[in-house]
């Protein structure tokens, strides 16, 4: 079944024709060529595909593209305010060496931003670790990811994002 979908991705209106079975992540990667969002598993557990839909973090491998009809989608590609300037979470990941191979990173960053906001910019280590339940990383041992998120929370607050 072919369906037309329209949504806003990173502030831009986009549309396309998809099959009913097309996942949001497939729409982003294949139809829009936005390959920053990754697929790392087929059981909705690794979190490499996390994006924001209407301000909430979700696994784009476990949502149909048609379900995002009319939604505002934010992906890793849309975070940085400019080519020179990164989002404070992106900055913190870099400053704290919170990424190695980079594959889990987009989902990790998207989850992290959502976490910071939900906790009103106030986090402790235990909370960060628990909140990362839906994101797997095989390289960093999580140590620096946790550090980065703890560092980003006040930075996001002061940057007003």
């Amino acid at each position: 079944m072919t369906i037309s979908v329209a949504m806003t991705v990173n502030g831009k209106a986009v549309s396309g024709k998809v099959e009913a079975r097309t996942l949001l992540v497939q729409f982003l990667r294949e139809n829009l060529g936005m390959t920053g969002t990754h697929v790392g598993c087929d059981t909705s557990q690794c979190g490499a595909c996390v994006v924001h839909v209407d301000g909430q973090s979700i696994k784009s491998c476990t949502m149909l593209a048609v379900q995002a009809e009319g939604a505002k989608v934010m992906t890793i590609e849309g975070l940085a305010p400019s080519a020179e300037k990164l989002h404070p979470m992106q900055e913190a990941f870099r400053d704290n060496h919170a990424l190695q191979c980079g594959f889990c990173t987009p989902g990790m960053v998207m989850s992290a931003i959502d976490m910071v906001k939900r906790h009103n910019y106030e986090l402790d280590e235990a909370t960060v670790r628990r909140e990362l339940e839906g994101n797997l990383c095989r390289c960093t041992g999580y140590h620096n990811i946790v550090k980065a998120i703890l560092a980003a929370a006040p930075a996001m607050k002061s940057a007003g994002v």
Partner: peptide
């Protein structure tokens, strides 16, 4: 239940 992303859906 699940993880934050699952709880959002």
């Amino acid at each position: 239940i699940g993880d934050p992303q699952v709880r959002n859906r």
